[in-house]
Design a protein around this nucleic acid. Sequence first.
DNA 1: GCACAAGATTGGCATAGACCAATCATGTTG
DNA 2: CAACATGATTGGTCTATGCCAATCTTGTGC
Lengths: 240, 240
Amino acid sequence: MSADAAPATPKYYLLKTEVLGLIAGLQPGTLIPTERALAEKYSTSRTTVRQAISELVAEGRLGRIQGHGTFVAPPKVTHVRQLTSFSDDARTQGLRPDSRLIALDVVKSDADVAGHLGLNQGDPVTRLERIRLIEGEPLAHETAWLPGKLPRFKSNLAKAGSLYAVLADAYAINIADVEDTVETALAGPADVRLLGIEMGAPLLVVHRLARDAAGAPVEWTRSAFRGDRFRFVSRVKAGG
Amino acid sequence: MSADAAPATPKYYLLKTEVLGLIAGLQPGTLIPTERALAEKYSTSRTTVRQAISELVAEGRLGRIQGHGTFVAPPKVTHVRQLTSFSDDARTQGLRPDSRLIALDVVKSDADVAGHLGLNQGDPVTRLERIRLIEGEPLAHETAWLPGKLPRFKSNLAKAGSLYAVLADAYAINIADVEDTVETALAGPADVRLLGIEMGAPLLVVHRLARDAAGAPVEWTRSAFRGDRFRFVSRVKAGG
DNA sequence: GCACAAGATTGGCATAGACCAATCATGTTG
DNA sequence: CAACATGATTGGTCTATGCCAATCTTGTGC
């Protein structure tokens, strides 16, 4: 106990650092000992082992698959977050973006969406819900809400791939500025299903409000990125 | 079981949503039933209750204090993240910033710091470690590394308060551009002690590399923000 | 009335164990 | 040899319980 009366370090945290030592220098994909083996090796309960490993999984250092085992995870993908869309951002970095359509329809806006898009509750909005992938790996669940109906939106999007390109080319909607809000959240059952991550794993949730040159809101998007696989980079220049 | 063969929703998650219903509309600070009472009310184990509540604490919906109880948490602080420093950013929003000095010294750079600042390992760097507070509440742990020694740095900083103002006014170091990397991490014992948060709580970790007009790195900073209390906003304009 | 001690309450951590779900390896059958 | 079944292994969730630490309330002594 220090003069600071600092709490004792929990046992699981000590084990976490032990496991970090175990995996140092190992190649991604390398299996580590099972939970039961580690519990025996370190004379601790399996629950304690699970807690240590869960944190390493959450931090993207380990992955684990039920029935298969626990393994060293690959490094995080760094994703440049700019004015451009997810697809454009990824391509800029030589990463292969892809997306899987979950829903594309026109719905009545709820209070939240209406508030952000400057609409009345119940006004129609175009909803685009996708899973975003990089190099074939699902990394984000994204739902965009766009004011009103957009004729032939589905076919235009399939052709161009990038939302922002479609908005500009087919609907003369040009993004002039973007406000991104970034926060953490924890994965629920839908995230588990859609992104293949663990219950309770940390997410980076980005809400984006995009406006045109006249200041009118043209996009409200919620993106939930895997916190274990992503880090964002944003760049700002003076005078910008 | 859906056609998708989705896993069953864990019991603790169902309880989490129940508790969310319980706290709807309650004022921040309002105590909720104890873990033991909730376990009895919902016919479940205390461990399951703890898991549900832990997630709500991590997401900033509840707070809890050992010996006192569990309560509705206040809303997250939204922090605009721009080219300017933490202090300037907060003041812009009418929030009272403060900081508590942990360490200010000249150290030999390790491999990581040297790499980012374009130095050789072992070169001297000025290290500034602080706790950042808003409205008296510790919200971030920040360590800045600056190349070389800065004469009278401590007194200059005490006078001006803001790192960037000091760099400009006293050392003619002007930030021309900034690259921020944002990712999630989990709180360890040091974070628990420094920020008053729970073990394993999600953090928003921001690494910042700042450069002068000539492109030389002038600051490498690591900031760990409480994920339960913070969300970031960044704004980007076209052409920026 | 104030200061301190003791007890009650509430959260923090860990153990032992049970049972189920997902994956993989091995064995059997056509 | 390929397809399917079975069994083993490994992770996922939950229960019951114990014990400790931190906070708060109440009681006691001065």
